[in-house]
């Protein structure tokens, strides 16, 4: 099992956000997590990546046999968890390529491997940026500095391609992208799909799923997964909106 979330509860300050999430992700699977605003989608991705400010009040998260919640954010990253941010931060003064190299080497060091050879690294990065339709100059600019929304998202995918994570969590990666940028990002993700690598796509809209076909779709509402299905569930949501899910829940309650 890649990831096993059982009865996860988390709160922000005094407000309960996640109220009993259960989710199992096997290697190679693509899971889409959909839901209305405020349903807890982004909280789930942040809790998985280890961001501070969230209180986990119950449940367990097991990542490849380890207790994920016990691991510091950087350990999770070095062990292969990658979060593509909804709003990647800008860091002027440190170049994009510097961060890529620092991140890759932190991971290699963690695995007991030697530092990446400078020439090999450059070759690898150049190959990846071409496939993401990014200009080589991006490597030498400050991290995300002055990048457009689409460029920032492509940069996240570039980092993902270099770090080769085992579990990729994409937090609203489609937000703010026009259709061309969306296609490039989706192509980048699809190129990384393997039988071992798993994906969790957190998204509000079905649109992204036209380009990245999920194996499972889950609907999150009020901090719980209220419905799961295959890719067709996303299409149904697109047609009917989230209202009918909430109505169904009200009927059950």
């Amino acid at each position: 099992m890649m990831l096993d979330i059982e009865n996860l509860h988390a709160r922000v300050e005094d407000k309960p956000i996640l109220q009993g999430i259960d989710l199992q992700v096997s290697p190679g699977e693509v899971h889409a997590i959909m839901g209305p605003n405020g349903s807890g989608k982004s909280t789930l991705s942040h809790v998985l990546a280890g961001r501070s400010g969230y209180g986990v009040t119950g449940g367990t998260v097991t990542y490849r046999g380890q207790n994920l919640l016990d691991m510091a954010p950087e350990e999770r990253a070095r062990e292969g968890v990658f979060l593509a941010f909804q709003y990647p931060v800008e860091i002027p003064g440190v170049s994009n390529i510097y961060l890529l190299k620092a991140a890759l080497n932190a991971q290699r060091k963690h695995r007991g491997e030697s530092e990446v050879d400078a020439m090999d690294f450059l070759r690898l990065v150049k190959e990846k940026i071409r496939s993401l339709d990014l200009d080589e100059q991006f490597l030498y600019r400050g991290v995300n500095e002055g990048f457009s929304g689409g460029e920032k998202k492509r940069n996240e995918i570039l980092q993902m391609a270099i770090l080769e994570p085992k579990l990729c969590i994409l937090d609203e990666t489609d937000s703010g992208l026009d259709i061309d940028a969306l296609k490039v990002v989706a192509d980048g993700v699809n190129a990384l799909r393997t039988a071992e690598r798993s994906f969790i796509l957190v998204t509000h809209y079905q649109r992204l799923l036209d380009y990245i076909k999920p194996d499972f779709v889950h609907v999150l509402a009020q901090g719980r997964i209220v419905k799961s299905g295959d890719a067709s569930l996303a299409l149904e949501l697109e047609k009917k909106g989230y209202g009918w899910i909430e109505q169904e829940m009200a009927a059950v309650a």
């Binding site: 280890g50 961001r51 501070s52 510091a72 950087e74 941010f85 440190v94 620092a102 932190a106 770090l163």
Partner: peptide, 17 residues
């Protein structure tokens, strides 16, 4: 957090920033 999520330890992240 962004740097940590890329595998950089918190002390190095602060120094880098």
């Amino acid at each position: 957090f962004y740097l940590e999520s890329r595998g950089v330890d918190p002390v190095s992240a602060r120094n880098m920033l």
